[in-house]
Design a protein around this nucleic acid. Structure first.
Lengths: 119, 119
DNA sequence: CAAATATACATAAGAATCTTAGGTAAACAA
DNA sequence: TTGTTTACCTAAGATTCTTATGTATATTTG
């Protein structure tokens, strides 16, 4: 049985906010646990967001005004559904643009030739 | 006059070792200050490696056996020329491969369509 | 030639971001 | 009913960076 290797935590460091904001941009509203599961599934387990990293980041994004939330009860259990504020929409776009640019720079710096994406 | 914006330090975090090891793979031997200047030039100032980050990283890579150095005197001033060990050659390749894979994963996750590199 | 800038190394305090470990509690599967 | 999954949370510690500082030589500029 093949176990998909995770990336070293160094690499993922710094991309968490970008990932969260972009997911919320595409999906309108999500709750924390859903974010961790979605990222795990979309990356085949290569990126696993730990809860110890996720929740403080969500609280930080909320404090800065990029996201807001509303509680929803599933039986007696609570979910906090987060969504982008207007400011957050801009932040999300900026973050993604910056990362896309960063990728190009790093590709050049590391002399990586990227296989054309399955278009 | 247009000032090229630097990336937020979050993004660069975690890629420093990869950048250093890859440069040494392509250039055989380099000294610390040369690395900072080369990266700054190659990225048009978008990535600036600070000395406070560089030197501890070089020392760490040396302690782990990925790089070695020999001193060279330019007049009375010393340069420490670093180069990859055999182990470092492997580490360098692994780091670059991992980063290339990481880029692909992030492109998918962030739904970024990359313009074909100026080929 | 003096002063400022560039070269070249280094360390240390603090900030930011993560991992690891722990806690609470409800829902569901075995 | 016992374990796993869902769903939230915090805190200690590790890692990796920034910022500030130190030392010293070489070069450029006024």
């Amino acid at each position: 049985m093949y176990i998909c290797p995770m990336y070293t935590s160094e690499l993922i460091k710094g991309t968490l906010k970008t990932i969260i904001l972009n997911l919320l941009k595409n999906r309108d509203k999500m709750y924390g646990y859903e974010i961790t599961q979605t990222v795990k599934e979309m990356t085949n387990g290569k990126i696993k967001i730990t809860e110890g990293a996720l929740y403080p980041t969500l609280h930080s994004l909320e404090k800065k005004g990029d996201i807001g939330f509303e509680k929803e009860y599933i039986g007696k259990r609570v979910r906090k559904y987060y969504s982008l504020t207007e400011q957050g929409q801009n932040t999300a776009q900026e973050k993604v643009n910056e990362f896309a640019d960063f990728i190009e720079t790093m590709k050049y710096l590391l002399d990586i030739d990227i296989k054309p994406s399955n278009a």
